[in-house]
Structures are given as C-alpha cells and as structure tokens.
C-alpha cells in the first residue's frame, strides 16, 4: 500500500529526469552523418579536449574548452572554500545562541532566499557597476573607484552570496544535533578550547560540512546565470558553454557532450567527498 504512493514520484522522475538524461547521453555520442543518417561517434568529446583557434585575430591554438572547465572548477572550489570559512563560524555561533537570538539569525539568513534568485543577482549588478553603490560610497570618501564587475571577483562574490545559506544550514544542523555533553566530556579529559574544537566539534560536524560542500560546489560548478550577469556576455563557465551550444549555436550534440563531462565531474567529486565521510560517522545521515 505504502509503495503505491511512491509511484507518482517514480513516474515523474522517469519522465523528467531519467529520460532526459538518457537523451543527453544519446545526443553526446551521436552525430548526423553525411547521408543524413545518425552515426555513433566520440567526436564531440574529442572536440572538447582538442586545441582550437579561438578567433581570427588570435593565431594561437589553445584548449579553450578545457580552460573554461578549469576556470569553472577553480571558481567552484574558491566559492566553496569561502563559503566554508564564512559559514562555519556563523553556524557555530548560531548553535551557541539562545533560542530567540537563534531564530532571528536563521530568519536573517533565510529572508534573502525568499527573493527570486535572478533578482538577487541583478541587485549586485547595481551595487557593483561603475556608478553603483560601492563606487559612489568610495568616491564620497575620496577613495579610488574599483572596477570589479565583469571579473572573476564579481562572479565569485555572486556565487558566495547565493550559496552561503546552503553551507550554513547543513553545518548548523549537524552542530545542533551534537550532544553538548560530548564537549563537556572532552573538557573533562583535559581538552582546552582549541582541542575541543579540533578533536570533537569539527569531526562531528563533518557530515554537515560535507553536505555543505556538496551543495555549494555542485551548483557552483554548473552555474551560468551568475557568471552571465556578473561576469558579462564574454565570460564563460561550463554552464554558459552548454547554454550557448543549445540556445545560440544549436549544436545539441556538442552541448550534450559538455553536459555529460560536467556530470562525470560531479560524480567524481561526490565519490571523493564520500571517501572523506566514510568511517567518520557510521549511521549518521549526511542529509540536512
């Protein structure tokens, strides 16, 4: 009987997740042959890794798609790292607060998420642009203006801003679940503040840290809206590349191949993360 209720969801997943996924894989390994037939090929993947001439005025051949992929990974790693550094203390402080203060902090964290994602990111545009809020403030104070819009820094800022709650919440949950007596037990056994944190609090919050990392790194590596808005039209990450192949170029085969490469990247990173999680906390859920 219970199983019956799962069927609509299974059906939903089948139609909207499994079938499209298979289609993407299908497109990535096929091409239209010279006589109009569909042929099986790995050419799209080869193309991704091959050096090409990027433009007429640039005679240098470079592996442009690979470098876009590397930039995506670098930015995703950077934003994940910054989110972790910013988010962990916030989560830690939240668990230490009284109930009422805690709710206010949580509320403040969640309010921006009620706003549309696009809108939130657009808002940064007006803050960062040449005559935006930041620069107006700087010039009022007689300081030199900064020009960070359409740079890596702006994209990074947008990513950190948008993904930070996804780092804080799972860490907060895992810290909150922790038995406060474990901290007392550690103190009792001679551990000072730093020791308690390093030997007990942090290891026990690892499941939260790992789901936080997953939840920031994945969308970070796949984003195309943030990079598009804050990085500008010429700024390319893997997500933008896929978007461009599908919407502008119309090369579904190559776009699918890039998407498959992205997926493999994600799967690899998940596998690596699960290795860290293993053995640390048997029986503890990593889901927030």
């Amino acid at each position: 009987m219970k199983r019956l209720f799962a069927y609509p969801y299974i059906l939903w997943m089948g139609i909207f997740i499994v079938v499209p996924l298979l289609l993407v894989v299908y497109y990535s390994v096929t091409a239209t042959g010279p006589d109009g037939n569909t042929i099986f090929t790995f050419d799209h993947f080869r193309r991704f890794f091959a050096p090409i001439t990027p433009g007429m005025d640039q005679p240098l051949r470079e592996r442009i798609f690979v470098s876009v992929a590397l930039r995506s990974i670098r930015l995703a790693l950077q934003s994940t790292g910054i989110c972790l550094l910013l988010g962990y203390p916030v989560a830690y402080i939240m668990t230490r607060k009284e109930y009422s203060e805690k709710s206010v902090l949580l509320f403040m964290l969640l309010v921006p998420m009620w706003m549309n994602f696009l809108l939130r990111t657009y808002a940064w545009l007006t803050i960062l642009e040449r005559n935006g809020l930041v620069n107006q403030l700087l010039s009022r104070m007689g300081l030199p203006m900064i020009d960070i819009l359409y740079t890596d820094a702006a994209v990074l800022l947008g990513m950190v801003y948008n993904f930070l709650p996804f780092m804080i919440l799972p860490i907060y949950t895992s810290l909150k679940k922790m038995d406060p007596r474990l901290i007392e037990a550690a103190q009792d056994l001679g551990a000072g503040g730093v020791s308690v944190f390093a030997r007990v609090v942090f290891p026990l919050s690892l499941p939260g840290v790992i789901s936080g990392i997953t939840m920031v790194f994945m969308p970070g590596a796949a984003t195309f809206i943030i990079s598009n808005l804050l990085g500008g039209q010429q700024y390319f990450l893997l997500g933008n590349l896929v978007e461009m192949q599908f919407l502008n170029v119309g090369d579904w085969h190559f776009g699918s191949a890039i998407a498959v490469i992205m997926m493999l990247l994600m799967v690899a990173s998940m596998v690596i993360l699960s290795l860290f999680d293993k053995g640390e906390n048997q029986g503890r859920s990593t889901i927030i």
């Binding site: 007596r181 474990l182 007392e184 037990a185 007990v200 290891p203 026990l204 503890r284």
Partner: peptide
C-alpha cells in the same frame, strides 16, 4: 550520564 562517548 549516558556516558558521552565520542561517536567518531
């Protein structure tokens, strides 16, 4: 009470 052993 309840031992507070370190689960990790």
């Amino acid at each position: 009470q309840r031992y507070a052993l370190f689960p990790h």
